[in-house]
Design a protein around this nucleic acid. Structure first.
Lengths: 277, 277
DNA sequence: TTGACAAATGACCGATTAGTCATTAGTATA
DNA sequence: TATACTAATGACTAATCGGTCATTTGTCAA
């Protein structure tokens, strides 16, 4: 487990410097100070490595954003907090962002392409959820356009984090983009992304979380967790997946316990989705 | 010259299908129906090929956009025409866009990275020029933010062309984005990209066009041009570069002649820049 | 100290790559 | 036809790649 993390860290550095295809397994193992054989004890192939890395990064990102979106923050600050969490993530993981948001070589690997599209759809859903909470019926036809604009702001402004090292005022940035979003939401009258258009775009194949696969996921995360409140919470939740008896508030509380552990936000996100919380 | 074009075309197909690194020179030559040796008569290395392709594509794109921006279209339609030209380019070159706007492997090649940044800066300048024409002093501090938003819209909405084949109404799209741009420009009050921030970002090394290099470029384009009004115009302009005597309107007229030939928009753009037109 | 097992090694393999160059094919001139 | 020149070929090389596996090293309990 630790070896896997080491490899992923060092590989990220190298991919960020040279790109995925241009980095050899040899180079990765050299930087890790391990042998080539040891690499293949952790990952079956080089592709499995990059897939794991992409999943890890995107899962964190999506779970982070979703947490803000589903939080009970008041309407007037939720947009600001939304942007803050996004760019905080960019700042903290500039190297990852460089590799995964840009290196679309990844897209030529069909398995990854599917997954990335699915994660992107998750992100879209979170944004739409936020917009619906914020504006309810005020946005008639322009909901999806506002969502596209938000994603455009993210893409455009994230370059500041990816291509330069200038220290940036995240609060100011978040405020500025929140205002822009607000303005677009309030004033747009000509929609382009209509409901029909959304229907036309092929729904990315989003593995619906089965009870089985969720139990497997939880088991996997339990392995990395020593005796603690978080572990107990996760164990309780595992039983609940098999045999639900607790009320929603209790479930939500248990999930929040898990979310406190940064590396466990993804499993919290998936469980919350499973219980529709 | 023709061989080069053939190679670039077929290579684009393959890169679009498999990515750059995953495509071998062998595959390219096979699809072209030529030998491996013949490839190396046209390009010194595989890298030189991808660099040429990126340059060709970006040059077309930038020259197209700049033409609209510098045109004498009335203020109320220029934004719409601007977006129309951009997405027309995306539509016509979806394959190129797929490869060059996304495959940022390219960025790991430092020479290309520099060039792409320089082209991006050209694009930014065109957009800023347009905004200054449109809003003059009405935009105080938010000029650069509006520019970032425009680039964000481009990035976000271009996905529709890159990841799906749904037929899209370009007019509607252009109108919708023009409205959004207008709204942002009129209402934004909280800037983030300040003049100082722009000063801080390292000016991309933009080869200033020397007389020599311009003459070389013109010569290169003259080779591909048979006897015609366009050729005569370009020849006249060549003499003007060496020894300027004509007035601006005449120069502008000659440049417009060149621009009529689609493949020659780039040289027209560079000459116009040289003469400050 | 021994023996049993797991963890880790790195030499090795077949496949593939970018790039070269001696050779040939094609064409224009005399 | 003979000569001279360029355009084009593809077998070849040296290097590198992802991945394997017989072997060694390290770590336990007995």
């Amino acid at each position: 487990m630790l070896k896997k993390q080491l490899i992923m860290e060092k590989a990220l550095e190298l991919f960020s410097e040279q790109g995925f295809e241009a980095t050899s397994v040899q180079q990765i193992t050299e930087r890790c100070g391990i042998s080539k054989g040891a690499f293949y004890l952790s990952f079956k192939t080089k592709d499995e490595l990059i897939i794991s890395m992409v999943e890890h990064y995107l899962q964190q990102f999506i779970a982070d954003v979703d947490q803000v979106v589903r939080s009970s923050l008041s309407k007037d600050i939720i947009l600001v907090e939304f942007y803050k969490s996004i760019f905080q993530a960019f700042k903290n993981n500039a190297a990852s962002a460089r590799v995964f948001f840009n290196e679309k070589v990844l897209l030529s690997k069909k398995e990854l392409f599917q997954k990335i599209m699915a994660y992107d759809a998750d992100m879209s859903k979170s944004i739409i959820y936020m917009l619906e909470q914020l504006y309810q019926d005020e946005l008639h036809e322009t909901k999806y356009d506002v969502m596209y604009c938000i994603k455009g702001f993210m893409k455009s402004y994230s370059e500041l984090f990816i291509f330069s090292d200038i220290p940036l005022d995240l609060d100011q940035l978040a405020k500025s983009l929140a205002e822009k979003t607000e303005i677009i939401a309030r004033h747009t009258t000509i929609p382009f992304i209509t409901e029909e258009l959304v229907q036309l775009t092929p729904e990315p194949y989003n593995e619906k979380v089965s009870q089985e696969s969720l139990l497997e996921l939880i088991e996997q995360y339990l392995n990395g967790l020593e005796e603690s409140i978080e572990r107990e919470s996760l164990e309780l939740l595992k039983f609940q997946v098999e045999n639900p008896t607790y009320s929603k508030p209790i479930l939500k509380g248990l999930i929040e316990n898990i979310r406190l552990q940064p590396d466990y936000r993804w499993v919290a996100y998936v469980i919350a989705k499973y219980f529709n919380i």
